[in-house]
């Protein structure tokens, strides 16, 4: 009996399902056949990253802080938030992490632009096609549950090292959040509102712009907030593929078991996260 189970287990382990081999073959095929596409994507991403980074690094830090304070004021109209943003940036400047912070902000901003540009239209399309959405859900689940480290390997293969592979891995990991939240917002538009607008002659396009999108705005803004927070959480992981920024000192601290450096850079990431969250929070009246 014992021999039988051993043989059964041996037989079972002998025929390994080729998940790894298949992934290998798929990525090999893509490297050979789609390198042009990947090069184009990489060039586009690089140009966007360069532009954002230039805009953040070139002006003197105090000017950048003033601009962020202005944005906070315009978005929140709340003086405490504006002062908090100022104190946060001054703390970063004090700790000597200005350049790293700007590099990480570049990654976060670029990831936001890409994720919202792809996520919102995709979410709208899926909300209008419930059956397609039910087919897409496993893919979105997979994108979010697969450990984000795993994305780094093909990202290096296709895009080399630096901020671009970091951005790609971040986008793949983060994209499901704005898609899901936009889909939720659009599809939970009250039927009564949709019918009222239809009864007054709204075309499908008017329905989208005048009813569905305004009704889904809180969810879409929550999606933006999620995108920022999840992108920030990828900052350290992106450092593993050579993306410069706040992740680099964290990784260095880990490799050299330097507790002080780890906490110092970790606290800066926390400060950035709190500032971005407070700046972009949606406060809906009633």
């Amino acid at each position: 009996m014992a021999r039988l189970t051993t043989r059964l287990a041996d037989w079972f382990a002998g025929e390994k399902i080729p998940v790894g081999d298949t992934a290998d073959r798929v990525f090999d095929w893509l490297t050979v056949n789609a390198s042009g596409l990947f090069d184009a994507i990489a060039a586009g991403m690089q140009a966007m990253i360069d532009a954002i980074l230039w805009a953040l690094i070139t002006p003197p830090p105090l000017a950048v802080i003033a601009v962020f304070m202005l944005i906070a004021l315009l978005l929140q109209r709340h003086w405490l938030t504006v002062i908090g943003v100022m104190l946060g940036f001054l703390y970063i400047l004090n700790q000597g992490y200005w350049e790293e912070t700007m590099q990480s902000l570049t990654l976060v901003l670029a990831s936001c632009l890409v994720c919202m540009a792809i996520g919102v239209p995709t979410g709208i399309a899926l909300a209008h096609r419930p059956r397609l959405y039910s087919w897409t859900r496993p893919l979105l689940d997979l994108m979010q549950t697969l450990p984000s480290f795993v994305y780094l390997i093909p990202a290096i293969v296709f895009f080399g090292i630096g901020l671009v592979p970091g951005l790609i891995a971040t986008v793949i990991f983060v994209l499901p959040a704005p898609i899901r939240l936009t889909q939720l917002g659009i599809s939970s538009t009250p039927v009564a509102l949709r019918e009222a607008a239809t009864a007054f002659g709204a075309t499908p396009r008017q329905l989208l712009w005048k009813v569905e999108l305004p009704s889904a705005l809180p969810q879409i803004m929550a999606g933006l907030n999620q995108t920022i927070m999840l992108s920030l959480s990828m900052v350290v992981i992106a450092a593993l593929v050579g993306a410069s920024g706040l992740g680099v000192p964290v990784v260095r601290a880990l490799n050299s078991v330097n507790t002080g450096l780890g906490f110092e850079s970790g606290m800066v990431i926390v400060v950035v996260a709190v500032m971005l969250d407070r700046m972009l929070r949606v406060r809906r009246k009633s």
Binding site: A192, L193, E195, A196, A197, A199, F200, G201, A202, T203, Q206, K210, V211, P214, S215, L217
Partner: peptide
């Protein structure tokens, strides 16, 4: 048409709701 549950767009002002049909 007038609806039982009003069917007004809650993020709009009174005037913007009344003008909906004209706007469309």
């Amino acid at each position: 048409m007038v609806f039982q549950q009003f069917g007004l767009l809650p993020w709009r002002s009174v005037a913007e709701n009344i003008g909906l049909g004209l706007e469309l």
